[in-house]
Design a protein around this nucleic acid. Structure first.
Lengths: 114, 114
DNA sequence: AAAATAGTTTGCCAAATGGTAATCTTTTCT
DNA sequence: AGAAAAGATTACCATTTGGCAAACTATTTT
């Protein structure tokens, strides 16, 4: 079972510029030029990042007239978050089991402690 | 304020092989060869992934004798999870504000609806 | 009808990425 | 001591990535 959309989400999130774009879009939909303004790069490079975010499903865009507006797509963000939460909770479970085991060993036969 | 450790974490998570490695390590510490066994690639390639995970702080390793054992480093996982949770909650807040605004517009002067 | 605005496309480039094969070092088992 | 096991190192390769400059299209504005 390969989770392609998860691959896509993490791939998109790997770049700092793209995470910053998302960080701005959570405040609300924004047009391309306004979105690009804080970044120290040309529009072509910026548009590539937008296309990655769109193809990987983290944003959607629509063009009306000459202006293209970008919106975040929250469910895809949530998918990545869920993966991380799951891993952390699995780790927690096995860390807890280990703690139990250690405690058992220490309390069962205290005179065996070495 | 650039968050380097967050950059590192997402960078490491971007690759499916590396996420699979973490998926195995949450079950408990594992030696390199055992960890590599399910993957269809040579050891050198695999070791590169391990080094990325270690440099980016998602795992720690220690070598005793000839075997190197790998452990997950949960706090770094949590950092990425927190970033995602924060973004989602910011988005939620502004989506809620929008809903309020729309409702206000619709209920304040219903006869203005167009 | 010009001129400005908003974005797009094309071609190019350097560096990073993800992989290989071959060789080498260290530790452990017999 | 010799062989096997576990991992590390080195050199090399194809592809992807992230950036640029220049030229182009479509929509507003004036």
């Amino acid at each position: 079972m390969e989770n392609h959309s998860l691959d896509a989400a993490f791939h998109a999130l790997a770049d700092p510029t793209r995470r910053a774009i998302l960080g701005r879009l959570v405040r609300g939909p924004t047009a391309v030029t306004a979105l690009a303004q804080p970044f120290a790069m040309g529009l072509p490079a910026f548009l590539k990042h937008l296309r990655v975010l769109e193809q990987d499903g983290l944003i959607t865009t629509e063009k009306t007239g000459r202006v293209r507006t970008c919106h975040i797509n929250a469910p895809q963000l949530a998918a990545a978050e869920t993966w991380l939460a799951t891993q952390r909770s699995l780790w927690q479970a096995s860390a807890d089991r280990l703690a139990d085991y250690v405690e058992t060993q220490m309390t069962r036969t205290p005179d065996d402690a070495n």
